[in-house]
Design a protein around this nucleic acid. Structure first.
Length: 460
RNA sequence: GGCCCCAUCAUCUAAUGGUUAGGAUUCCAGAUUUUCAUUCUGGCCAUAGGGGUUCGAAUCCCCUUGGGGUCACCA
């Protein structure tokens, strides 16, 4: 069975890079009928993480990812870590170190001054004397002193680290007894039965340390997949400064979860020339061994394109529901099918769609100056009046085609081109020179409102 | 700085050592549309540089350059 996990530290919200690794882990677990676990890495419990965990679950819910089982909080597993630290102590694979922070600091300064790599000098590694008075000990693990550690990575291949270059007897428990990251990650992944660790490649250099822990404890080493970072336009790791990194911000900005997920899965992964992936297809096709080795730049244009694609394909009922979040209530509007059909072809985001809806439904507060100059001539008034009369004299008008017929009549009667009536009418209806088809707009707002808007323009 | 990773159009990417280096987004042009948008058609644009190996290299090896990540009693 494949077991994957997503293990964020509680930073307050789920960011876009986190969502990507969560998605990939989720896909791989589900594809194999396995489990996808969620663990909150809050061993540094100076922060309250309940809100953070809720933020992550909310974001998961929005995009439709679901984790299995209970959320594990590392802060509630302290006894477990202590137990395993003690096991290592008993087995002689870890030891207490009484060096103070100050001593450590001076050691590091000396080493740096000598241009050596800062590194613990193993002074308590084989210590069996009397511990110094009044010192709280940290627990250090005995790391190998020579040789190399190879990370067998499903994305990067075999990565060999020279022990002398990167390791020392690192701390697994602080002086106050709390465990440190590289220790708890390994313990938890092993205890929770995680078989495939899919995470950002900023963790690649931590992995040898975690392997040291796995080996000391006799745990099987999982498969690792270190996925490349998402970069910003400067080519740096995506950070808060880059704007929308909070997943929930995308909801506010009018993106659909389908588009966001599709966008993220295509960053560093592909399947031939295919661009559009439903969740079902991702589930059928995704394999972490196909992930690219290089970082990718986050570019919004593609997301926008995907989003407009998905908006075009959402059912009107669903669209109606989604637009409510953006303050547009259409459930009881009798012409909502016409409206939605027209607008979903021309909206990149749900926010745009909501705005365009309001531009149709709400009578324009004023008329764009440039538009008036360009499209509202002296002759336009008579044309609009004729059109208004024609509307009044028409029988039942419902569909866009009904209104289109009236326009055709007037155009034929006055022997003018469509543009002569189109421009002023558009200004009357929308207050500007762009927008959906005029017949569509009129069908949506109805005869009375159409006449009122024409009247409003004629009276300026 | 040490260690590690990475390198195909502006961007996301495709290409069992043999292709006119393909697709998508952006951009540009044309068509459709009473407008704008959509849609359709077409176009511009790439193997970082230098050495090898090979009949043949985007692909394998080495070097250079460039970029990124990481080096805590943070996670």
């Amino acid at each position: 069975m494949i077991v994957t996990r997503f293990a964020p530290s509680p930073t307050g919200y789920l960011h876009i890079g986190g969502l990507r690794t969560a998605l990939l882990s989720y896909l791989w677990a589900r594809r194999n009928g396995g489990k996808f676990l969620l663990r909150i890495e809050d061993t540094d419990f100076s922060r309250n993480d309940e809100a953070a965990a809720r933020a992550i679950v909310d974001a998961f819910k929005w995009v439709g990812l679901e984790h299995d089982g209970e959320i594990e909080y590392q802060s509630s597993r302290l006894a477990i870590y202590q137990e395993y630290a003690q096991k290592l102590l008993d087995a002689g694979k870890a030891y207490k170190c009484y060096m103070s922070k100050e001593e450590l600091e001076t050691l590091r300064e000396e080493q740096t001054a000598r241009k050596e790599r800062p590194k613990y000098d193993n002074r308590y590694r084989d210590f069996d004397g009397t511990p110094p008075e009044g010192r709280e000990a940290v627990i250090r693990i005995k790391a190998p002193l020579e040789g190399s550690i190879t990370v067998h990575d499903g994305v990067k291949g075999d990565v060999v680290f020279n022990v002398a270059d990167i390791l020392d007897d690192f701390i697994i428990a602080r002086a106050d007894g709390t465990p440190t990251y590289n220790f708890v990650v390994a313990v938890d992944d092993a205890l929770m039965g995680v078989t495939d660790v899919i995470r950002g490649d900023d963790h690649l250099s931590n992995t040898p340390k975690q392997i040291v822990v796995y080996e000391a404890l006799g745990f099987p080493i999982p498969r690792f997949f270190h996925v490349p970072m998402i970069h910003n336009h400067e080519g740096k790791k995506l950070s808060k400064r880059d704007g929308a990194t909070d997943v929930m911000a995308y909801k506010t900005l009018g993106y659909t979860p389908e588009a966001l997920l599709n966008f993220l899965v295509r960053l560093g992964w592909s399947h031939g020339d295919q661009e559009i992936f439903s969740m079902k297809e991702m589930l059928e096709l995704f394999d972490p061994s196909d992930i690219n080795r290089s970082a990718s730049v986050y570019n919004v244009e593609k997301l926008d394109w995907l989003n407009s694609h998905y908006i075009k394909n959402i059912s009107n009922d669903k669209l109606c529901e989604l637009l409510e979040f953006h303050g547009v209530m259409l459930v009881s509007h009798d012409k909502r099918e016409i409206l939605l059909d027209a607008l979903k072809e021309r909206s990149k985001t749900l926010v745009e769609m909501a705005n365009q809806t309001n531009e149709i439904l709400v009578r324009p507060a004023g008329f764009d100056e440039a538009a008036l100059k360009k499209g509202y001539k002296e002759e336009s008034k008579a044309i609009l009046q004729t059109f208004a009369e024609a509307l009044k004299n028409s029988a039942e008008l419902h569909l866009p085609s009904d209104y289109h017929h009236v326009m055709e009549q007037v155009v034929a009667q006055l022997e003018i081109g469509f543009g002569k009536i189109g421009q002023p009418l558009r200004i009357a209806l929308m207050g500007k020179l762009s927008g959906p088809g005029l017949d569509t707009v009129m069908a949506i707002i109805g005869v009375d409102e159409t006449l009122a808007r024409i009247e409003a323009l004629l009276s300026i």
